[in-house]
């Protein structure tokens, strides 16, 4: 109770990655290389889901309340 709780944590900066990366078409707007016949545009953007999962998981574990 003595220390005021804050939601500021350096880990939160990690959340900017999955927000910024999918918004840069230059990274994924191409056909080659294909993966299982799927153009880069599609498989790489699906891959960004992993970035999002990883970032949110790390932030969840690093900022959850000590118990």
């Amino acid at each position: 109770m003595t220390t005021p709780r804050t939601d500021r944590s350096p880990w939160n900066w990690l959340l900017l990655l999955p927000i910024a990366i999918p918004l840069i078409p230059a990274l994924f707007n191409a056909v080659e290389p294909r993966l299982f016949g799927i153009p880069l545009f599609y498989w790489l953007q699906l891959g960004f889901v992993l970035v999002s999962v990883a970032a949110t998981l790390v932030v969840y574990h690093m900022t959850r309340r000590a118990r």
């Binding site: 939160n12 999918p22 960004f48 949110t56």
Partner: peptide, 24 residues
Amino acid sequence: GATGFFAVPYTVIVYPLVMIVLIR
């Protein structure tokens, strides 16, 4: 075509945003 795939980046971005904003 490709324009329709915006739904994927959209749903990738939204969860980190919720974590930053809606939690407050």
